[in-house]
């Protein structure tokens, strides 16, 4: 577990960027990404095109592995352990069991303990986060609402998870049993949170980050690193925006610095109103 979560620790304070080609992976690395997520379509395109979204073609993942020296992550469908096995055999550095792809199992997530490769999973609330950790996830990210360029859902998820953690640290022993029941999460993990005041694995933010200010916002709310999906390569000028988001994650506590890097980046991705969505990806997973 220490070795598996260790890589997540090393990614803290960094930006993990979605890329669909080796050329994009290079741009991400040049901009200072700590890792890239190799996938066939960014969430905004998955949302637009519809159809079943699956694990990427191994050729494409290998191409990206060749193109960069930083860690390469890839997505498997929720519950699709065969896809995860394939990704592990390709030597990806992290598997994202992701709601952005079409779920393969309606009630079971992957048993992540049975893998050597570490897993990251999305969560909308603390109960979901703790269930994923009990299944072996070594990193949790907010789900947000991928492909929208709208930060509101990620903020909701972060506030829910981190707010409940703060409440648990104030609870007495008897109340912890009730918390475990309410969250539908293992008591041991709830007790651990009461003691340490934090999740047992790093907590990153994903879903809707489009600007340096978005990155600063979620870091100030308590995220330890950020994933940027469509926000970079669906913007007008990806390279400077990618670099600006990297700078904003490092200097998130310094508004003057975030202002400086926010200048003249061109148009952000257009973005979508959450109320008008047909499919909410965050509702996938349980």
């Amino acid at each position: 577990m220490r070795v598996k979560r260790g890589l997540a620790d090393m990614l803290r304070g960094g930006v993990i960027m979605d890329v669909v080609t080796p050329a994009e992976a290079k741009i991400a690395e040049d901009a200072g990404a700590v890792a890239v997520m190799a996938l066939e379509r960014v969430p905004a395109d998955i949302r637009r095109d519809g159809g079943v979204a699956r694990m990427s073609d191994p050729v494409m993942i290998e191409g990206i592995q060749e193109a960069v020296t930083i860690p390469v992550m890839a997505k498997a469908r929720i519950g699709h352990f065969a896809e995860a096995q394939i990704l592990e055999s390709l030597g990806v550095d992290y598997v994202d069991e992701s709601e952005v792809l079409t779920p393969a199992d309606e009630s079971h997530h992957i048993d992540k303990w049975s893998f050597t490769v570490p897993f990251v999973c999305g969560a909308t609330n603390l109960g979901e986060a703790l269930r994923r950790i009990s299944e072996g996830a070594c990193m949790i990210r907010s789900k947000g609402e991928a492909g929208t360029g709208n930060i509101v859902e990620a903020v909701r998820h972060l506030r829910s998870i981190l707010g409940d953690i703060r409440k648990i640290t104030q609870a007495d022993q008897a109340e912890l049993f009730d918390w475990a029941k309410q969250l539908q999460a293992p008591l041991g993990l709830v007790q651990e949170i009461a003691e340490t005041g934090s999740l047992p694995v790093p907590m990153f933010c994903a879903g809707g980050i489009a600007t340096p200010a978005d990155a600063s916002l979620v870091m100030q709310l308590g995220a330890e690193a950020v994933f940027v999906g469509s926000g970079i390569f669906k913007s007008e000028d990806p390279a400077p925006r990618a670099k600006a988001i990297v700078e904003a994650v490092t200097h998130y506590q310094d508004p003057a610095m975030v202002a400086k890097v926010s200048r003249g980046l061109g148009d952000a991705m257009p973005g979508l109103e959450i109320g008008e969505l047909e499919t909410k990806l965050a509702e996938r997973g349980w």
């Binding site: 090393m10 990614l11 304070g13 960094g14 200072g32 700590v34 930083i70 990297v246 490092t250």
Partner: peptide, 15 residues
């Protein structure tokens, strides 16, 4: 500390 040396290198320069 540990982290991504390429990222830290870039941030050392830009800061």
């Amino acid at each position: 500390p540990g982290g991504e040396s390429t990222t830290i290198s870039m941030l050392l320069e830009s800061s």
